[in-house]
Design a protein around this nucleic acid. Structure first.
Lengths: 352, 352
DNA sequence: TTGAAAGCGTTACCAG
DNA sequence: CTGGTAACGCTTTCAA
């Protein structure tokens, strides 16, 4: 049986309340008494029973994190930062994987809600905000990461996804691509935002994606790499085939490159490829992968800070949004000379 | 305010105890009463307050997992399986990263213990079993994964690490390597076991590692890849230099390959490289990496089953050990013709 | 500055 | 089969 406050109180001839107050740095306790209690706590290696405390205060000291896939380094990194930061303040982080499946995600979140959490952090796979509107009405405070909802005003930390699409597409244009395709992501904000950035950039450059240049797949399977490979296979059947591909994420890009090389084509000479995520192993790939960095570490940190502020504030603070700026990272998969001047390119490819 | 048993009891004109019993499938409850209670529970979407329950039963419905690095796909995969399996039984999994640092690990485990967990799952970075002996004396049941202690009888799920070393080394010999080096891992059981398998296999083939052929680094940094690159740099200064390298894990192997290629040498022609872990992206690397598969999924599953059995059994069951057999996966990094016959090789390299 | 009493939501133990 | 009572370890409130 572990030590309780009662033991300490009895030992020292003070009341349980006194011990409790010392523990929480309540100030109306005599220095003498405080010291004695503190000493005894150290001696017995006492730690308060959080279940009991929670029963009174309504807190569980448990925070939930729901991500589409813990195997993806982006989410693993965020999980790691969050768990470390929260533990310092005595909160435990429980991590669940939704497998990019909105229904599974909702079931898991409901389970967590039933358990009673102090806060929730979610990279949601849902395509609508209904679930989160419900949680806002009756549920713990939460922070969305990576994925947001246009019709939901909520705490959010993520990257500017339209900028991701713009950076990637501008870069492909810059290195001389004119027939630029996009392997798109799911119908969540990053997928939609990156597509938008792609389309807008093309439009600005007076380029038009030919039919079939935007993949029609709606949901990225958990197996992004395979889905990238498969989608690329379809792209290669097009005439003319693309000379540049912007992929929703790095695993898809890796799959795409695999297909391209298998078909006997070269990357980047025949087709340049760029992804997003800037995975730690991008440098070590068959063709080192150009990518858009999403500031993963910063997202983790900010999300942790934001969550802690929700946890510690008595009143529910107003929602905050942090949109980080992505950065272009150039590697071999797009490193090629421009092959034609702007004018030549225009005349060649703009014929719709 | 969430619904409580009291609400249900009042609504139905029964006692709280009755509701409680229905909830836990206690059998001495009339069918009629049971149905009414169940219906009302559904209606109100009632879920029991686990903190309150835990206060009485001593259970927290929380399970802890401590791993060296959540970013490593091996541990991420295990975390994912465990979290899914446990949630089904209403246990939450909280995941902590020790960064391969025994002191940090101990601090984190102590914190978890203070919080009160129902079980603990650990891939420990500790080099001694002291901490776990303490937990066995006064702590929750636990399962060690991936890393065990020779002087500790405990629940364990992992791979046969000596077999890992044997498979890798035998394979290098098989493809014609005669000067085989080893980038060793930390002083934990996998590091020690793989080294042993390596040494024994060499001995059996009457080969001897030349001085410097076993790296002296004691601890693998979290940045395994960089440490592999660095260690390989040192190996390349040796005369004669190795013609085959068995690396403790795949990230180290990736780093090693990086160094070798940078030095203008070829893999596998000049130096064959094999790792361990069989990461999902091994196929997509600059040089697709031969590796020893550690049966990650199976480890996760078994660990989950074992943990659940500890959780559900009233008495503490006796310790169980599951040692899985690793498997050789051959890819380009070791795919070369034998370059000499056994006899020729022997006469050449066995001159100590 | 201290402490007594009440109560948080649940389960264990017995009596009826 | 049902339910009253006590208890789990802690915090809150308020009186001393």
């Amino acid at each position: 049986m572990p030590t309780t406050m009662k033991d300490i109180a009895r030992d020292l001839g003070v009341s349980v309340v006194t011990v409790s107050k010392v523990l929480r740095n309540h100030r109306d306790i005599g220095d003498e008494t405080r010291k004695r209690v503190l000493d005894r706590i150290k001696e017995l290696n006492y730690t308060p029973n959080l279940a009991a405390r929670g029963l009174v205060t309504g807190k569980t000291y448990l925070v939930g994190l729901v991500v589409p896939d813990l195997l993806h380094p982006f989410f693993a990194q965020i999980a790691k930062s969050l768990s470390g930061a929260l533990l310092k303040k005595d909160y435990c982080l429980t991590i669940l994987t939704s497998d990019e499946d909105p229904e599974l995600e909702e079931r898991e979140i409901n389970r967590l809600l039933g358990r009673g959490l102090d806060a929730l952090i979610i990279a949601s796979s849902c395509t609508t905000s209904a679930l989160f509107k419900r949680i806002q009405k009756q549920g713990p405070p939460f922070v969305l990461i990576d994925r947001s909802f246009p019709d939901l005003h909520a705490n959010f930390v993520g990257v500017d996804d339209e900028a991701v699409g713009i950076l990637a597409t501008e870069h492909l244009i810059e290195v001389g691509c004119r027939r630029i395709a996009h392997l798109r992501g799911p119908q969540t904000s990053p997928g939609i935002g990156r597509l938008k950035g792609y389309l807008n950039t093309l439009a600005k450059s007076k380029l038009t994606p030919l039919p079939g240049y935007v993949s029609t797949q709606r949901l990225v399977d958990v197996q992004s790499r395979e889905s990238g490979a498969e989608l690329m296979r379809q792209m290669l059947t097009l005439h003319p085939r693309p000379d540049g591909v912007f992929c929703y994420n790095d695993p898809m890009a890796i799959g795409a490159i695999h297909t391209i090389l298998d078909a006997g084509l070269r990357v980047p000479e025949d087709i340049a490829v760029i992804g997003s995520g800037n995975l730690h192993y991008d440098t070590e790939l068959r063709v080192p992968l150009s990518s858009i960095d999403q500031q993963t570490e910063l997202i983790g940190e900010r999300a942790a800070r934001l969550t802690l502020s929700l946890l510690e504030s008595k009143t529910r603070p107003r929602n905050k949004t942090f949109i980080l700026q992505p950065q272009l990272v150039i590697r071999a998969s797009t490193e090629r000379r421009r092959r034609m001047t702007g004018a030549a390119a225009k005349s060649l490819t703009n014929a719709k």
